[in-house]
Amino acid sequence: MFLDSWSIALVICGLVVFFMMGFAARSAVRVLLYWDPDSDSGRQIKLENEIWLTSTLVECALGVQILSLTVFVLAADHFSGAIVGAMCATGSLLANDFGVPALTVKIGGVFLYGFWIVLHQLDIRSERYPLVRLKYIYLLTLLPLLVLDLSLGMMYIAGLEPDIITSCCAVVFGEAVGGGTNLFAGFSHFLSLLLLYGSTALLFILGGLLLAWRRIGLVVVFGGVWLWFFLLALVVITTLFSSYVYAMPFHKCPFCILKPEYYYIGFAIYGLLFTGAHLGMSVAVTEPLRQVVGLEEVTERFQRRATLWSLVLLALFTAVSSWHYLRYLLLGGQG
């Protein structure tokens, strides 16, 4: 289904990211080969200029990647109008083997590019750019992921078979009719709520401890719990909170909350969750940088800020995502 505006938009997003990251990688190779902070040769000055280009390119690429994640989900929702048995994005993502992997790689990509930007921001705070080599090695390792992202997206679109009335005799009827397809099933309400709110409380405790009294072990646990919380929150939004947003017990879908019918609340929920989780995890990711000469203070300041902001976003996320559920309980519903 390449000849659809949404498919073309996805391909354009993919190509723009690829183009920018390709250029960034070109500079990366040069920097890795010739970088010498002690030199004041013309080449070194040129390279120092080039790192601004690379960082701008990667920042733009991250923006496009976030956009393309949104476009991907909206495109899947749009395709559902043309695919047998698909009622919303869930159905069309499951329509072939590449939908869910493509989505996963895109989500992973957003986090990994984000970590690059954190590294870069820390690096430019120091006069000697101590992280240049690390940054560019990391950038080059991101390239295969990018190729994977682009190819999975293409294979997903290529594999979509639209359901149209053919001119031959009787039509074929798809098996799946209902929209109740669900990515995760079999979680009990009580258990998932307990886990989610338990993890939220744990994150607040860990964050509070980190702000007052920091230890390496604690930092790593904090990042790990954020990763766990991110995955858990995705599951709980899908299996539990979403049906309260739709006010339909059997409609459990992580994507329909992004639609205008529900006032785009999904964008707020996912935006808070992704940013919070990214900040929370980057606290752990940047921990080794505290050993780098010239970055001790900068890193620590960043970690404190990131911890604080991740907790603020966590509180907001909890409020926004639980809002429909709480309102239902307050209005006399039975949980």
């Binding site: 354009i12 723009v16 733009c60 496009v64 956009l67 909206l74």
Partner: peptide, 14 residues
């Protein structure tokens, strides 16, 4: 509008 944006502004930015 997101679709139109992807078609026009992204290539311009690149």
């Amino acid at each position: 509008f997101l679709l139109i944006f992807c078609f026009s502004v992204l290539p311009y930015m690149a």
